[in-house]
Amino acid sequence: MSARSYLWLFLPALALLLLFILAPAADLLRASMFDPDFTTEHFARLVTRGVYIDVMLRTIRVSLIVAVCCTIIGYPIAYFINLQPRSRQTILLFLILIPMWMSILIRTFAWIVVLGRDGLLNEALAAVGLIDEPVRMLFTSGAVLAAMVQILLPIQILTCYAAMTEIDFDLIRAARVLGAKPRQALMRVFLPLSLDGTITGLVIVFMLSMGFFITPALLGGRQDTMIANLIEFQVQRLNWSFAAALGLVLLLLTIVMIVLLRGLGRMAARRILKAGL
């Protein structure tokens, strides 16, 4: 039988995609352009008022920073876990999974306890005499970034780890046999092979960050408003059409950025593969 005759196996997935992704997206488009008659006022408002452009740029910027931070912190951790004996790997992975299973809301609230004026960090700093007055840490961009990185880090670690476990260690051995120093083997064999999975992790973290809502709402100030916060805000205000326009813009921005990131990532990977580090 040819591959074509198995195409019907895609049908359930296709139906799912159509029903729960494409149809709602089409409805979003409709809601943003008909209020109740055809209008482009909501999109016009989005592009003509500087504040909304600022929010979009900020959302992309924050998501990029979070994705890169998660990658820089997560990659070595995944590598370390990958080097451990099997039984210890299980324990370490479990330690990473536990916080991931906790609700984002709870983890965000935990940061309030840590970063508050009378919070753990301020008290610790005051106790060792580093500060006299409590420092404002809550309701700052730093608080949002720290919490988002902490919340999304397990995802990047697990994605990197999954990519690394598939690497055939015989290749590293072969490199060593052929005279590569351990560092060279790591940089020129292991890293390029794990790069694709790492980029996938980075894109996933980026994608999740783009829609982040609770963390900026609870830990950030008004200067940290992201698109998802605006959407929630507009829904609360019963401006459904404007919220729909924002939702559509978020969807489009995310798709464009994912394509860009993947493209750039592949390009970088190819260059590294060719030239080495």
């Binding site: 504040v51 909304y52 600022d54 205000r237």
Partner: peptide, 11 residues
């Protein structure tokens, strides 16, 4: 007023 206020907040 709300539209103005919401945008004022974001400024």
């Amino acid at each position: 007023i709300r539209e103005r206020f919401d945008e004022w907040l974001l400024e």
